[in-house]
Design a protein around this nucleic acid. Sequence first.
DNA 1: TACTTTTTTCGACCGTCGGTCGATCTTCTT
DNA 2: AAGAAGATCGACCGACGGTCGAAAAAAGTA
Lengths: 205, 205
Amino acid sequence: MTDLQNQNKQNQILDALQALLRAKNIQNISVSEIAQAAGIGKGSIYYYFPSKDSILDALVERNYEKPLETAKNLARQTEVSPFTRMAMIFQACRNSSSAFRAQETPGADVKEDAFIRQKYMKHLISEMKPVLTEIIQQGIAQGQIRFDHPAALAEIVLIVLTVKLDNALAPSDPRETEETILGLISLLEKGTENPEGSLNFLMTW
Amino acid sequence: MTDLQNQNKQNQILDALQALLRAKNIQNISVSEIAQAAGIGKGSIYYYFPSKDSILDALVERNYEKPLETAKNLARQTEVSPFTRMAMIFQACRNSSSAFRAQETPGADVKEDAFIRQKYMKHLISEMKPVLTEIIQQGIAQGQIRFDHPAALAEIVLIVLTVKLDNALAPSDPRETEETILGLISLLEKGTENPEGSLNFLMTW
DNA sequence: TACTTTTTTCGACCGTCGGTCGATCTTCTT
DNA sequence: AAGAAGATCGACCGACGGTCGAAAAAAGTA
């Protein structure tokens, strides 16, 4: 079987898992269920993946590849304002992370699918950090940003946004999340020596 | 049986789990193992805890109670500088979180005990946020801090520090971690309108 | 086409796990 | 002392992740 056909089959399994993930968390999804949803036998799952965890890994990878690509492309568009590019990156992250985001569980506490989201966040932060750092450095070179620690700034922004986006590590109602983002923007304005309110457009949530 | 004796028994189980946790991750520790390490039968575990997860919850709670107590006490000591109190809180968090921190796994990637650390971080952030917010508000009232979003600032600082402290969500070598903390301090100085270098003492890592 | 070989599919099966349960032992009460 | 209430236990249960060899499907060969 060609690599392409092989990937199709893997994607078929990944699609099934992603669909199931919308209704319940990983711990409550059995391999048999995934197989059934994918329309294949349970044994076949293990022909394409060595373990249940590895299916999750693959799904995470498939989901963060797209925003990463977007970010890398944006890093090259030096004619666009660095903050605008930052906003576009966050939007891309937001869209693709929705597959894993903690659902609104009104009465009960947040579901314990910590595992997969942590994996997603970890990869996203580590892969996105150098790209965002580069964009910030361009902003410094162009005089739009005044700050001495571009890599640190990139990581701080990524950590806060990823954690708040996920809404499981530091769960908040929308109102509180907005307040935190507003504070981050204010902190960014003062930190990068931009006038107050000039970064409000980042608030596209 | 008195409540005190009951708590002793629970602590005995918690101690056993904490000891086992140093060697392997949760997923690889069975309830029978915990029982054996605690010197009791498996069934007795379920006399004191309703589920395996609840044992973890209790262990997490036991570990974040102390720094939380410390923080609450500090919140009352308005004569001490808010930043000094912040530093003391971080130190307390640092000490008590070591039970869950990701070990240095030289060759391999970070162990997958994500679950428990995420739980610890979540509780720590949510419990610590109001306390730290109060301290920041005091700093604003006293004129040592100039910033419009005290709660947001508290959450941002807590998120970044907790994530970096944990070293699993955004793993870095010590050199890189230092750079990020340095950047956070710089951002804090500019954000709270304090002179550059004035918060360097927070760097007690 | 007829055959062998290789790839792919499958579900019964295995060991282990979290959790239950009634039997049993211990400790309190009167 | 005797019964009630509290505490302990490990055999047992259903379900899970993962294995395996048989068998079906596909590909190669003449």
